[in-house]
Amino acid sequence: MSTNQVEVHGLSKSFFDQARGEVNAVREVDFECRSGEIFGLLGANGAGKTTTLRMISTVLQPSSGTARVLGHDVVREPVEVRRNLGFYSASTALYPRLTARETLTLFARVNKYPAERTRDRVEEMIERFGLGEYAGARIEKLSTGMKQKVSIARTVVHDPPVLIFDEPTVGLDVLNALDLQKGIQELRDEGKTILFSTHIMSEAERLCDRIAIIDKGRIRACDGLEGLRAATSQHYLEDIFVHYVTADDTTG
């Protein structure tokens, strides 16, 4: 069996923006995510992280190149891709008038989780994420931390092998952010493949098994932290990041 759960080759995205004209948001991006690893996509705001992840999750159509999730092409088999994927980002909101339990049931159903096991799976998620006391409360009544737990639970409720977390800690306080990072590590330990994007160096350093540095839509480097250190003779990820980004600026 192939160890690559996600394969991205020559992926590009350009679009017309009313204010800026033609924008090349992602340019010929290549990377693979191996089974059971946390793969980090590290880049500044506007570097192309979200656009890349949206193409992998089939929300956006690539302009060129290919992306596959468990061998399923994002353009030709979008439903199969999404069935094997859990997508979490700060912009993926929940329905405010559903309860936590209803939310999990809805997403289990629309993600085609087996009907006969849905109820048990929902209860399992409620227990695992500590939602028991609030399972019957509407999302709009929950605290930010609880909403975030429900969000993660709905991302994994259909038990997808690949999870995408797009800047998941944006807007969270330190404790909630740490809580979320812990949850992501647990999911990796269970064997999930995790594609994680962030612009926070410490987060990438702590969580990621391998890191791809993305800047102006291009992947500048891709390796484990040790490999990146060896290649740049820098110790801290911030310095490594600056090394690759400024190297690009000087070379044009």
Partner: peptide, 17 residues
């Protein structure tokens, strides 16, 4: 406006569904 559309579009529900 609520941000739930992107959540829905990343599920296994097809556009036709």
């Amino acid at each position: 406006e609520r941000g739930t559309l992107e959540t829905l579009l990343t599920t296994a529900a097809s556009r036709v569904e």
